[in-house]
Design a protein around this nucleic acid. Structure first.
Lengths: 126, 126
DNA sequence: GCCATCGGTATCCTATAGATACTAACGGAA
DNA sequence: TTCCGTTAGTATCTATAGGATACCGATGGC
């Protein structure tokens, strides 16, 4: 996709990029990595998301073709959510990011401590 | 970092992960890829961000040790923002995601069209 | 008849983002 | 000496999104 530019607010790639970066969407996608999951299970795994926001997230992911929604005619109801091929293709990139996040937690926490200490704590030459 | 779990809302890795996924933070980091950039240049490159939000984003990135802020004693003022080593280490993961986004724009746009058509347009057996 | 289950909605409240106007500090022009 | 332009933000207000909570419909079991 030459010509696509994340920095251009009119370019769809920016919208797509920010959708991935959505607070909940990427977590939901990762929960679905191992196969279909139903609504209530998603709620438990993606800790702590409210039903309203989970519904919004799922609708958006469905609209973008990343997941499918399957309703079973049962009572009580059962609805399965599952990654599409497109959704699965996102798992790799997300895993890279997740790995970075999990392995750099200490550095970031240290940086925060130092930063906060520099203003709340002993101010240098107050 | 074994034990880090993105799904746990109490785990710092989740906070870190969602910070990366912040609407603006990841764009700013990518603009800084080629070296220090000053505030006004960032505003131009990260199209269209308001100064308030850019400031917030920069402060957070600085606090997390991803960028440094350098003030030059000049008038008019000059402030350079620059990636730290930690910030640079994030460029790879972000590039992967960016590539995914830019190359999958067509698929996602198609999915949206199909989805919207199924409800606004000719409903099947209305 | 009443309760539990599941996948959501509806309602309300707050927190964040966004738009816009403004400020400090100084050099140079008028 | 007053005014203007530059840069890096703040202050203020409004709009939108997120979050907490309560509720709903359908049905099988007690």
């Amino acid at each position: 996709m030459p010509g696509a530019d994340i920095m251009d607010p009119l370019c769809p790639s920016r919208v797509v990029f920010q959708r991935i970066g959505d607070k909940w969407a990427s977590l939901v996608v990762q929960v679905l990595a191992d196969g279909p999951v139903r609504f209530s299970e998603l709620r438990k795994h993606v800790h702590v998301i409210t039903p309203k926001v989970l519904t919004q997230t799922l609708r958006t992911l469905e609209r973008d073709g990343l997941i499918t929604r399957t309703v079973f005619a049962q009572v009580p109801p059962r609805v399965d959510y599952q990654l599409t091929g497109l959704g699965e293709s996102l798992l790799g990139p997300l895993a890279v990011l997740r790995e970075w996040a999990e392995s750099n937690v200490p550095s970031i926490l240290d940086a925060r401590d130092a930063y906060d200490e520099a203003r709340d704590g002993a101010l240098p030459e107050g």
